[in-house]
């Protein structure tokens, strides 16, 4: 039987992630798509720890740690440095969490996208500052409990629409992914590798301690996020929009929200509001899919 994704592993066991971490699956699939001729640039994020303390390293490609706000800029510099030394081949990927992308790193991200730097920027989005212990970021959805939105109502603000911000930069490739769909994710990283210019991949990455669910349910929640329409799988290549998975009948958002302790305080009307928002967004996405732009 031919496997649907590469059996080669560039990520090793012995990494330092929490049990059930979605971000480890994400890195594993990303590197399957990109292969060994890749340099990873990491700002402060969960992966700073997951990669391992010196002298150990849980990935088999060169890795540069960078300050929190600096992922996209440092990756731009790595690409320029490699090119200046005659290596135009190696793929350079900035790999940041939602805090390092939606919040503190957005200036450098916007600058690098605006310059159309020849790098991949992947945001593995676990929807809060998980490495520092669950504080709200611009990626935290409305109603989610965090240590800095401690009331029963959770986050009073909706999740920032980062994909729209990135699309406004008119970059050649934007894609979304989540680890329940490994073939889709590996394909998107492999495709991104072949494109020149700034490529942005947004991965929804479930986090058991931050989202408060059973560590065995990471893939299940990742899948439910797509099946309920809370997270859409799509790509925008050279301005052409395509939904990669268009469920005929979406499950109610409650099936995704209820297993997560972070939404425990959600009242029925708040859940209904989330459902209405998802329905409205999905109508727009379906229109875009039909239109192809």
């Amino acid at each position: 039987m031919k496997p649907s994704i590469s059996v080669d592993e560039l990520m090793t066991s012995g990494h330092q992630a929490c049990q059930g971490c979605g971000a480890t699956l994400t890195m594993r699939y990303a590197l399957k798509g990109l292969g060994p001729e890749t340099v990873v640039v990491l700002p402060a994020c969960c992966w700073t720890i997951i990669a391992g303390a010196a002298p150990r390293c849980s990935i088999g490609v060169p890795l540069l740690h960078a300050p929190f706000a600096a992922a996209a800029a440092a990756a731009s510099g790595v690409k320029a440095g490699l090119s200046a030394r005659g290596d135009g081949r190696t793929t350079v990927m900035a790999w940041a969490g939602d805090g390092g992308t939606y919040d503190i790193g957005i200036q450098a991200l916007s600058g690098a996208a605006d310059r159309d730097e020849d790098i991949i920027y992947c945001c593995y989005d676990n929807e809060a500052y998980m490495n520092t212990g669950i504080q709200r970021s611009g990626g935290t959805p409305s109603g989610a409990w965090t240590m800095t939105t401690p009331g029963k109502e959770g986050s009073e603000r909706p999740k920032k629409d980062l994909d729209a911000i990135m699309e406004a930069h008119r970059i050649p490739y934007i894609a979304t992914a989540t680890p329940a769909y490994p073939e889709d994710m590996v394909r998107k990283f492999a495709k991104a590798k072949t494109i020149k210019g700034f490529r942005f991949i947004h991965v929804l990455s479930p986090c058991p301690p931050g989202w408060k669910y059973d560590t065995a349910d990471t893939v299940k929640l990742s899948r439910l996020a797509v099946q309920t329409g809370m997270f859409a799988l799509y790509e925008i290549a050279e301005g052409r929009f395509k939904l990669n998975l268009n469920p005929a009948k979406r499950k109610p958002v409650g099936e995704y929200l209820k297993p997560q302790g972070r939404f425990r305080g959600l009242k029925p009307d708040a859940e209904a509001a989330i459902q209405a928002e998802v329905d409205a967004r999905w109508a727009l996405l379906s229109q875009r899919h039909a239109r192809g732009t």
Partner: peptide, 11 residues
């Protein structure tokens, strides 16, 4: 930050 990256690449 870009020079951090470029210099680590050996430039």
């Amino acid at each position: 930050a870009a020079l951090l990256g470029a210099a680590t690449a050996g430039a």
